[in-house]
Structure formats: structure tokens, C-alpha cells
């Protein structure tokens, strides 16, 4: 592999990002930050895909990563719209104050 960076380094980076994202979703209370943490997980996936794609010399992983970037944009658009609707009705975007429907 060019640059002599072994695949395990990429996998380690991606696992670290994935873990950070999961902790962010579970521990943070602000919904926008939860959304950002989900994006972090998606980027961990992208790093994985691109690294594997390079390692296996198969371009389909990179194509997949492009689809994930497009999907993350669509998801963020819808998600922010829903967050705005929530804020209008409720005046808050703290996850622990979403208690009208009991968990």
C-alpha cells in the first residue's frame, strides 16, 4: 500500500470515531449534538469503506462512500426540519425534555 500506512491504522481511527459517535448519541442531551454524533458514525463508516477500497483495490467501496455522503445530507436536511418543528411547538431541543410520550 502506498505511503506505508497499514490498514489497521485506518480501522483503528474508524473504530475510535465510531465509539465517540455512539458515546455522543447516548450521553449528550442537546439534539443537534446527537445529530452531529450520528454524522460522526457515518464518517467512521466512510473511512472504513475508503480504506478497504484502497486495500482491496476495488472501487466500489469509494462509490458507496459517495452514496453515504449524499444520504447524510438528505438525512440532515430532514432532521433539522424536524428539530425546528419540535422547537416551534415545545421551545426546547433538549433530549431529556421530550417526555410527552413516555419512553
Amino acid at each position: 500500500m502506498p505511503g506505508n500506512v497499514p490498514i489497521t491504522h485506518y480501522l483503528f481511527l474508524s473504530t475510535a470515531l465510531f465509539t465517540l459517535g455512539v458515546i455522543g448519541v447516548l450521553a449528550r442531551r442537546n439534539i443537534v449534538i446527537i445529530l452531529m454524533s450520528i454524522e460522526l458514525i457515518l464518517n467512521a463508516v466512510n473511512i472504513n469503506l475508503v480504506a478497504f477500497s484502497r486495500h482491496l483495490a476495488s472501487v466500489s467501496g469509494q462509490a458507496f462512500a459517495v452514496f453515504i455522503i449524499a444520504d447524510a445530507a438528505a438525512e440532515a436536511a430532514v432532521g433539522l426540519g424536524i428539530i425546528i418543528a419540535m422547537f416551534r411547538n415545545r421551545g426546547t431541543i433538549q433530549a431529556d425534555e421530550l417526555d410527552l410520550l413516555k419512553w
Binding site: 448519541v25 450520528i38 424536524i82 418543528a85 411547538n89 421530550l98 410520550l101
Partner: peptide, 18 residues
């Protein structure tokens, strides 16, 4: 305009994308 509906959408969206 319904707060319950927005809350449902938000929960579905967050957990769904997770």
C-alpha cells in the same frame, strides 16, 4: 402543529438514523 407528532418524528428520526 401537534407537539406529540413532532416529538414522535424526532424520536423516530434520531433512533432510526442511529
Amino acid at each position: 402543529r401537534d407537539v406529540k407528532s413532532s416529538e414522535a418524528a424526532l424520536k423516530y428520526f434520531l433512533l432510526g438514523s442511529f
